[in-house]
């Protein structure tokens, strides 16, 4: 392990805050962050462009969108439907949501790369069935200040004095709860074994350098 690599990785065993509903299936990453806002070399400042085309008209007038509503400005738990985050691998999508203020997402289902990108930022993506999600979305709509608490280890969400069962992918749960969701340091510590695996591969070795010179 290189000594320089000392990044504090917090354990994420719960998340809480008020919610906001983002309704609709198949909400893709082009909607979450349109490609024209990706012409940047850092993620800073992406928050204001989250869902941009859903929030503003051509003339920059506000459209109806939860991200525009005063009552949701302090919300941090997004409640979504199925296949959320499908499309491209752009980490700009969860980065924009995180920088807008989202700490956790509860939904019917998530696209895989999107969920992986969220995990890399320590954002849990927990799932429940369609009916449970719709109930929660309705409740959030009526209770924009209502507190939602996600217990990641026990796979439970509490709101409005009730507790519902949710599912957290095993690897995600472990990674968040044990604070190993930032894999760089962890994997770097295995450098020796990595080298062995590489040397065992028939195409590594001379193959590694010859097209590069």
């Amino acid at each position: 392990m290189t000594g320089a690599d000392e990044v504090e990785i917090p354990e994420v065993d719960s998340a809480s805050g008020s919610g906001l509903p983002i309704r609709g299936n198949d909400i893709d990453t082009d909607q979450i962050i349109p490609a024209r806002f990706m012409k940047v070399v850092t993620f800073d400042g992406l928050g204001e462009f989250a869902f941009f085309d859903k929030r503003f008209t051509e003339d920059d007038d506000l459209k109806d969108h939860p991200f525009n509503e005063d009552r949701f400005q302090d919300s941090s738990v997004m409640v979504v439907n199925s296949n959320f985050g499908c499309g491209s691998s752009r980490e700009h999508a969860p980065q924009a949501l995180m920088r807008w203020g989202i700490d956790a997402i509860i939904g019917e289902s998530f696209a895989e790369i999107f969920a992986g990108n969220c995990l890399a930022l320590g954002i849990p993506t927990v799932t429940a069935d369609s009916e449970t999600i719709q109930d929660l979305q309705d409740w959030v709509d009526e209770n924009p200040d209502g507190e939602i608490n996600i217990d990641i280890e026990d796979e439970k969400v509490t709101y409005d004095e009730q507790t519902i069962d949710v599912t957290v992918d095993d690897a995600q749960r472990k990674a968040l709860v044990d604070g190993v969701w930032d894999t760089t340091a962890l994997m770097k510590s295995n450098a020796g074994a990595v080298g062995e695996t590489a040397r065992d591969l028939p195409y590594v070795g001379d193959a590694a350098g010859s097209s590069a010179d």
Binding site: V41, R90, A171, K174, T183, L186, T197, A198, V204
Partner: peptide, 26 residues
């Protein structure tokens, strides 16, 4: 496969890493 990580995920060696201008600078 290099090893299984504490998360249960596998650590995989990458034989070719392709990069482009949009997702690599960060």
């Amino acid at each position: 496969k290099v090893t299984t990580l504490p998360t249960g995920q596998d650590q995989l060696f990458v034989g070719l890493h392709l990069i482009h201008e949009v997702t690599s600078p960060q």
